[in-house]
Every structure is written in structure tokens, then in C-alpha cells.
Design a protein around this nucleic acid. Structure first.
Length: 264
DNA sequence: ATGACTGTTGGTAACAGA
């Protein structure tokens, strides 16, 4: 089974890249993030043989699963998913559960597409939200990991190791690399998952994100923050970053990760 | 070159992204 994850940075803006990419790569299941719409272009991907589960509510966020091997038991949000209460401690603010997760069972594989909160800065309420979100995620996924073949994938907004950013010295005091964030990843792996690290890309680093600005892609100043966490019982026959999708006209700032699994 | 972006919206400036 071929699965993939891709933060498309607006599925509407990316449709001219997404549709030919689906035909070229032909994944069985695709996890998308940052769809940035309440109106997923369902008919366009259905025409290519995919069923769609989308959790999107407008301008920000949005996660989807596309599958051509069946799509059952769809869940929008995970159980206990925290909401975001905003930038301050306003007494009457009601936390909003954002469109950052969708789960489904596809061809015998239980799979989640996630867009983990960014965190913004370590002293920001969004960072505390990010940590709480990852804590709740781990608790929610535990029974599903135990139940059978499982993959949780998407934009984790955490670089697992110092080697997963272009230069750790440039990240002093930043989010995405803190021990607290990385501890949450370790806890997730502790459920019985492995980090499926793609084959090395340019300069031997399988980065998946490069800022649009300052020629970062050209300089390969990237980060590996789009992750695939798969059951340790699953055999991985290949995994790579599709750097070609980050090139050319109108790319996302993230590249897709493509993984070939052998289902039991 | 201490430079450099992209997407969305009761939109045309503000915010988010990482």
C-alpha cells in the first residue's frame, strides 16, 4: 500500500499541482493538511478514484484523507481534542476545537491526518495549546494503535532531532525543537509506532519544509516536520520526500512524503 | 544583498505560517 502526506498550503490554490501529482504518484491513501477551506474540491479528486474525508472550516487549518482503497469509520477530531482559547486569558473565551485532524480506516489501515498547532513562540498561549494537544492526542490514539495496523501522519510542527533542521544554532529559543515538544513525539512512539524516516534528499537530509522566503529551498535550509508514524509491526519497503513537488510554479512550502507499506 | 514569500478574507491590510 502506498500512502503519502502533504501539507498543501491551501487545497484550492494547489489543485493544479495536486491533481497531476495524484495521477503521477498514485498513492492509495493521501493525508492532506492546511486545506484552508470549508469547501473541499471533492469532485475533482473523486474523478481520479478517491473517496474524501475532510475536516475544514474556513480560512485556517483543515485536514483531509483521500483513499482509493475504502474509507470507513471517519472521525473529525480525536477524542478529547483540546480547543484553542485565544491569545490571552480572557474569562469568557470559549475554546474552539479547530479543524486539525481527521481519521479513517482505509483498506484495513487505521490512519490519521494531523495538522499540529504551530506554537508560535515558547511564551505564547499557542505553545501551551500545542503541548496540551499532543498530550491529548497520545491518550486518544493509544487504543487505536493497540487495535491493529495504524499510521498517524501529517504536519507535526516538531523537528524530532537537531539533524532535522538546517542549523540548530538558528533555532535557539524557538518552537519546533524544544525538549517538551520532542518528549511528546517520544511518547507517541511509545505507543508502538516508528518514525518512518524518508530516504536522504539533497545534502543527505530528508527535509519536508522550506520557507518561501530568502531562497531557503534553493539553499536546502529546510526542516523535517512532516512525519509518518507507523505501527512497528508494519514493513516499510520505501519512503522518500518528493522534492519535485516543491519545485516549479506555485508549489506548497512543504513537499509530500511518500511511503510504501506492506500490509499484513 | 543586512535583500528576497504565500495564502486567506463581510478582503485590498492584517494575520498566520515555522
Amino acid at each position: 500500500m502506498r500512502i503519502a502526506t502533504w501539507n498543501v498550503n491551501s487545497v484550492g490554490a494547489r489543485l493544479p499541482r495536486l491533481l497531476p501529482w495524484l495521477e503521477d504518484i498514485a498513492p492509495d491513501v493521501v493525508a492532506l493538511q492546511e486545506t484552508k477551506t470549508a469547501n473541499f474540491p471533492t469532485a475533482d479528486v473523486q474523478a481520479l478514484g478517491y473517496e474524501v474525508a475532510h475536516n475544514g472550516d474556513g480560512r485556517w487549518n483543515g485536514a483531509a484523507l483521500l483513499s482509493r482503497v475504502g474509507l470507513a469509520d471517519v472521525a473529525l477530531h480525536f477524542p478529547g481534542q483540546p480547543g484553542y482559547a485565544g491569545d490571552d486569558d480572557a474569562l469568557f473565551e470559549v475554546p474552539v476545537v479547530e479543524a486539525r485532524a481527521v481519521g479513517a480506516t482505509c483498506g484495513g489501515l487505521r490512519m490519521w491526518s494531523l495538522y499540529v498547532p504551530n506554537g508560535r513562540s515558547v511564551d505564547h498561549a499557542h505553545y501551551r495549546y500545542k503541548l496540551a494537544w499532543l498530550d491529548a492526542l497520545q491518550a486518544a490514539l493509544a487504543p487505536e494503535v493497540a487495535a491493529g495496523p495504524f499510521v498517524v501522519t501529517g504536519d507535526f510542527n516538531v523537528a524530532p532531532t537537531d539533524d532535522d533542521v538546517w542549523d540548530i544554532a538558528d533555532f535557539a529559543g524557538s518552537t519546533h525543537v524544544t525538549p517538551a515538544e520532542r518528549e511528546r513525539l517520544t511518547a507517541l512512539l511509545g505507543l508502538g509506532l516508528r518514525d518512518v524516516i524518508p530516504r536522504p534528499g539533497k545534502n543527505d537530509r530528508p527535509f519536508t519544509y522550506w520557507d518561501y522566503r530568502a531562497g531557503m529551498f534553493h539553499k536546502d535550509k529546510g526542516m523535517r516536520i512532516d512525519l509518518v508514524y507507523a505501527s512497528t509491526s508494519l514493513t516499510v519497503s520505501d519512503a522518500y520526500v518528493d522534492r519535485a513537488a516543491r519545485k516549479g510554479t506555485g508549489p506548497s512550502d512543504h513537499a509530500p512524503v511518500v511511503v510504501d507499506l506492506e500490509m499484513p
